[in-house]
């Protein structure tokens, strides 16, 4: 299987000014490692505020001007420089955003998807992309506010296939949908993956992610703390990190047991394991060891000093 996207030790920093002059640098993503293969759906699961969307923007090269990225991102084996991602986004790398407010409210759907191009070829491709998701020619003449919720979501997916996407980044594409509607959307993703695209599926919903994903990467406070094949989630003893296990126990079919506390904000003093405050297995050296590395463990990856220990709840 060809690897489409390979992220190694990616960090994203924001520069902020406090009261005008005091500058501080805020790490929002730290030491992220992730890979997506062709035909594969990789789910990135994390709570809101864990930096998931910034991961998407970082790959696309559209982070705000007061940020910078460290580490390496490879696309199809080659380094993804800002110039290259500017060249590829919208053509080979596509973003599927959350909802209708990602469309220009004052522009008709057609011109938005064709990006103002006058080429007949582009218009034909756009028509075909809309047709593929059951949207007729009249959709192109509509404004975003005239679309129903379901239509808007299909338009956003169609926007991805107006190019020839090899990597699709779906950032929370199913908010507020019931399980059935969400599964229908995810069915479209599976279809795109089967056609050979790699899909990075960013979500806070582990249960939903497991219905479609091949690989799951768990995000906590801007770090990937575990990467596991989706089938590992069928049995909690095969999971590696205490947070992933806590997520598993929080799922409705596994007892709905929530974890107490909240993840630390990026500006809180990072010292030791960031999960220490919520971890039931926390040891004294967990609080002292800075920058715990992500390492191979039982066929997956984990960032923990004592992975795989049985969690007592």
């Amino acid at each position: 299987m060809e690897t489409i996207l390979e992220i190694e030790h990616m960090s994203v920093f924001f520069t902020q000014y406090e009261r005008g002059i005091r500058r501080r640098i805020l790490p929002v993503i730290r030491d992220l490692t992730l890979s997506v293969g062709a035909g594969q759906i990789v789910a990135v699961v994390g709570a809101s505020g864990s930096g998931k969307s910034l991961l998407a923007h970082g790959i696309l090269g559209i982070l705000p001007y007061n940020s910078h990225v460290e580490g390496t991102i490879r696309y199809a084996g080659e380094l993804l420089t800002p110039e290259r991602s500017a060249e590829l986004r919208g053509r080979e790398i596509a973003l599927i955003p959350q909802g209708v407010n990602y469309l220009d409210p004052l522009m008709k759907i057609g011109p938005q998807l064709t990006k103002g191009s006058r080429e007949e070829k582009v218009h034909r491709r756009t028509r075909r992309a809309l047709e593929r998701y059951g949207l007729g020619r009249e959709t192109a003449e509509m404004y975003p506010f005239e679309l129903s919720g379901g239509m808007a979501r299909r338009v956003l997916i169609a926007s991805a296939v107006t190019g020839t996407p090899r990597l699709i980044i779906a950032d929370e594409p199913t908010p507020g949908l019931d399980a059935k509607a969400a599964e229908r959307i995810l069915g479209h993703f599976r279809e795109l993956a089967d056609e050979g695209a790699g899909i990075l599926f960013i979500t806070h919903d582990l249960e939903l992610a497991l219905t479609v994903a091949d690989q799951v990467a768990v995000f906590y406070a801007g770090e990937t703390i575990e990467a596991a094949p989706a089938e590992d989630f069928s049995d909690v003893s095969r999971l590696r990190h205490p947070f992933t296990k806590a997520l598993w126990h929080a799922m409705p079919e596994h007892g709905f047991n929530p974890i107490s506390g909240a993840q630390p904000y990026p500006d809180e003093k990072a010292h030791g394991c960031p999960f220490a405050g919520q971890c039931s297995e926390c040891m004294s050296d967990c609080r002292e060891t800075d920058r715990i590395p992500l390492r191979e463990f039982r066929g997956g990856m984990v960032r923990c000093l004592y992975p795989g220990e049985e969690t007592v709840l």
Partner: peptide, 17 residues
């Protein structure tokens, strides 16, 4: 700073566009 500008950039529209 709106979402639709972010998405326009993500779709590869140039800064001028």
């Amino acid at each position: 700073e709106s979402d639709y500008i972010l998405f326009a950039r993500a779709r590869g529209e140039s800064e001028a566009s």
